[in-house]
Nucleic acid binder design. Structure first.
Lengths: 223, 223
DNA sequence: TAATTGTACTTTGTATACAAAAAATGATTG
DNA sequence: CAATCATTTTTTGTATACAAAGTACAATTA
C-alpha cells in the first residue's frame, strides 16, 4: 500500500505511531544511526522524518544532541484541551449549517453504532466508533484546515484517550452526549451543539488529568 | 545573532520569510541545487528545511518533482480565518480571566500606541503596533499551544495583512475595536471581548477577500 | 577519595556521491 | 512537416563520508 511513499514518509509515519502509542517513551532519545539500522534505511530519511516530528511537536530538538520524544506535562495537555474545546465547539456550530442530508444519515448511523459499541465493553471497538462519529462532524464543516488542526491536537492525547474510553461508568453519559450532539446538529441548534461539544471535552479533560496524575505519582514512587 | 543556529534552521527561516513576503511566488518550484548554491550550503540543510515548510503547509510536495510554494486559494483563506475567528475569540475570553496587572498596563499603552500609529499613516508602523497589541492579549492567555497555533495561522495571511492595514477608511473603526477589546478585557467582560474579537476578524476577512479577488482578476487578464 | 583533565568513542551536522525517475532535446520516420 | 521514440540532461531520493561537537571513562593529581 505505502510501498510507493518516499522512505522519509514511511519513517515519519512509523516514528509518529511509535511515539503516539507509547512504544517510544517521553524523554527517550531518537538516535539516527540506531533508528536507521532498525528500520533498514540510511540516516537521511530518518533525519527528514525527525524534522517533521519536530514541527509537529512530538519531539524536541536539543542542539548537537539530537531529538528526544517530547514530555507531556499536565499544563501542556490542559493547553491542548483548551484549544480543542474551542475548535470542537466551532465544528459543531459549522456542522449545523453545513451538514448534508447524506452526512446526517451517516451521523445517525454512527451515533447508533457507538451505543452498540459501548455494549461490547471492548475499548478498541468503542474508540473506533467514537472516532467515526466525530470524524463525520469534523468533515461536515468542509474546512480542511480545521480538520488538520483537530487531528493534530487529538494526536497529542492518543495515549490517554484509550484509558478514558475504558472507564465504563462514563459510557452512559458518553452515549447521551453523542445523542444530544447528533440531535442538535440535525435540528440546527448551534448553541446546544456547541455547548455539548464543550461538555464532552470537559469530561475527557477530567479523566485524562486524573490519569496523568496517577502516572506521575507512580513515576515519583519509583525514584 | 543566528550564527549558532543549525544551517537547516537558518534556511528554514529564510525560505519561510521569502514565501511569506511573496519573494517566492505561489506555484514556484523550490529546486534544491539552485537554492543550495544561492544560499551557499549543501542540499542537506535545504531538504530538511523543506520538510518543515511542508508540514507547515507553506509548500506542497509533488512526488519525484520536489516542492513548490503552496497556492493560496480564496477557500483556503476563508478556512484559515474561520479558525482564527474562533481562536481569537478564545484568546479574548481567556485574557479576561488571566491577564495580570502588568499586562493590563502594557495593553493600555499598546492600545494608545496603535491609535498614534494610525495617525502616521505609515502602514509598516501601524502593522507593528497592531501586532504588538494582539501579542499582549495572546500571551496573556498563558497557553503556549494557542500562541503557536495563532502565529502559524496569521503567517498564512502575511501578504494580505499589509494591504488591509493600508486602507485608511478602516483606521477609525480599527482603533475603536482595539479600544473596546482593551476595555472588555480589563473589565472582565468576556462576552463583549470575544464578540469584538470576532468582528475584528470579520472586517479583516472582507478586506482580504476583496484583495484576493482583485489579484485573481489581474492574473486572469494577463492570460 | 574527590576532582580534573586528557583521550577515545559517539553522535550530530553538513557535504558529497550515486542511482533512478522525470523532463528536455533531438533525431528519425511516416 | 508532424509525431514518435531514443538519448541526454536535470532533478529528486537515498546512501555514505567526513568534520566538529559532545560524552564517557579512565588516569592522574591534589
Amino acid at each position: 500500500m505505502d510501498e510507493f511513499l518516499p522512505l522519509r514518509d514511511v519513517v515519519f509515519n512509523t516514528l509518529r505511531k511509535a511515539i503516539l502509542t507509547g512504544e517510544l517513551k517521553p524523554g527517550e532519545r531518537l538516535m539516527e544511526i540506531h533508528l536507521a539500522n532498525r528500520l533498514g534505511v540510511s540516516r537521511t530519511p530518518i533525519r527528514e522524518a525527525i524534522r517533521k516530528l519536530e514541527l509537529e511537536g512530538l519531539v524536541i530538538m536539543i542542539p548537537r544532541r539530537g531529538a528526544e520524544v517530547a514530555q507531556i506535562t499536565e499544563k501542556g495537555l490542559k493547553d491542548v484541551l483548551e484549544v480543542r474545546r474551542a475548535l470542537d465547539a466551532l465544528c459543531a456550530e459549522l456542522a449545523c449549517d453545513r451538514i448534508t442530508e447524506e452526512e446526517q444519515g451517516r451521523l445517525k448511523e454512527a451515533c447508533g453504532a457507538f451505543e452498540r459499541a459501548t455494549r461490547t465493553k471492548d475499548a478498541t471497538i468503542i474508540a473506533k466508533a467514537d472516532v467515526k462519529f466525530h470524524d463525520i462532524i469534523i468533515q461536515a464543516t468542509g474546512n480542511q484546515r480545521l480538520v488538520q488542526l483537530i487531528n493534530n491536537l487529538s494526536e497529542q492525547m492518543y495515549r490517554y484517550r484509550f484509558e478514558y474510553i475504558k472507564d465504563e461508568n462514563r459510557h452512559d453519559s458518553l452515549v447521551n452526549e453523542h445523542r444530544i450532539i447528533y440531535q442538535s446538529i440535525v435540528s440546527g441548534d448551534k448553541k446546544r451543539a456547541a455547548e455539548t461539544a464543550r461538555l464532552h471535552i470537559d469530561n475527557q479533560e477530567k479523566s485524562i488529568i486524573r490519569q496523568i496524575r496517577l502516572e506521575q505519582e507512580q513515576a515519583a514512587r519509583k525514584k
